[in-house]
């Protein structure tokens, strides 16, 4: 099937560099974002699985902070 090969790639070394760059930029972006999230939103998201039993609210974040 793959009949039309490139005969050679002279700069095959570019591939790992591209890979590393993509990952690096991606990861830096991710870290910057995560550092900027607001605490309220974090608590809201964390409570999602616990609050599903018909609306019971939980506020044990303060308690957990002291652990």
């Amino acid at each position: 099937m793959f009949k039309h090969y490139f005969e050679q790639v002279h700069n095959v070394a570019i591939w790992p560099i591209i890979s590393l760059s993509i990952f690096f930029l991606f990861f830096v972006g991710l870290i910057i974002y995560v550092m900027k999230i607001k605490r309220d939103h974090v608590h809201y998201m964390q409570d999602l699985p616990l609050a599903d039993d018909n609306g019971q609210e939980l506020s044990i974040h303060d308690e957990l902070k002291n652990l």
Partner: peptide, 17 residues
């Protein structure tokens, strides 16, 4: 795990990363 332990996940920020 949060359900069974009855407490929220340790770090939501860590879960994003």
């Amino acid at each position: 795990l949060p359900k069974a332990a009855n407490r929220p996940v340790y770090s939501y920020k860590l879960s994003i990363i």
